[in-house]
Simulated assay, not measured.
Amino acid sequence: MEFCPTCGNLLQYETANAGVKARLYCPTCPYTCEIEHRVKIKKRQRLVKKSIEPIFSGEDAMKFAPKTEATCPYCNFGQAYFRQLQIRSADEPMSTFYQCCNQNCKREWRED
Rank of each mutant, 00 (worst) to 15 (best):
V20L: 10
I87E: 13
L85Q: 14
C72K: 00
C72A: 00
N104C: 08
K50R: 10
I41L: 10
F3A: 14
S51A: 12
E69A: 07
E69P: 07
P5V: 05
N102S: 01
R23M: 09
T32E: 11
C105N: 02
I52P: 03
T15G: 08
Q12H: 08
C100D: 00
F56R: 10
C75V: 06
E69F: 09
S51I: 14
A16H: 13
K42I: 12
R107I: 01
K40Y: 11
A18C: 12
Y13A: 02
E2T: 14
L47R: 13
N102F: 00
Q12Y: 02
P27L: 11
G78F: 05
L10M: 12
S51Q: 14
R46F: 05
L10F: 05
T32I: 10
C105G: 10
E53L: 09
Q103S: 09
E36H: 13
A90M: 06
F3D: 07
P5R: 05
K50Y: 02
K21F: 04
R88H: 07
P73C: 07
Y81M: 09
F82I: 02
R38G: 12
Q99D: 05
A16L: 02
E111T: 07
K40L: 13
T6R: 14
R23F: 08
P5F: 08
A80W: 02
R88Y: 06
E2K: 15
A22T: 03
A22M: 03
Q84F: 08
Q99S: 12
C7N: 06
P5M: 08
K67C: 04
S95L: 04
R46T: 14
E111K: 10
P27H: 11
F3E: 13
G78L: 09
R38C: 13
F97H: 05
Y81H: 15
Y25D: 04
F97V: 13
Q12F: 04
K50C: 03
Y74G: 00
Y31K: 01
C72T: 03
R110F: 08
I41N: 05
C72W: 00
K42M: 08
R110K: 15
S95R: 07
R107S: 10
I87R: 04
E108F: 11
P66I: 04
C105R: 03
A90N: 09
Q99K: 15
Q84T: 15
Y25T: 04
K42W: 03
P30T: 07
E14I: 14
Q79F: 10
N102D: 10
M62E: 08
P54Q: 04
V48P: 00
T71S: 07
Q45K: 11
I87F: 09
C29Y: 07
T71N: 03
C105E: 01
F56I: 01
F77C: 04
Q12A: 02
K21W: 01
Y31C: 07
C29T: 06
T71I: 14
K40V: 12
A65H: 00
S95P: 00
E92I: 09
C72G: 03
Q79L: 15
A70I: 01
W109D: 07
Q45V: 13
Y13Q: 01
K106E: 04
E36N: 15
Y13R: 14
C4S: 01
G19Y: 05
T96H: 05
K50H: 04
T71L: 08
Q12L: 11
E14R: 13
Q84A: 13
R107V: 03
R23V: 08
N17E: 11
Q86M: 05
F97R: 09
T6M: 07
P30Y: 10
K50N: 05
G58W: 01
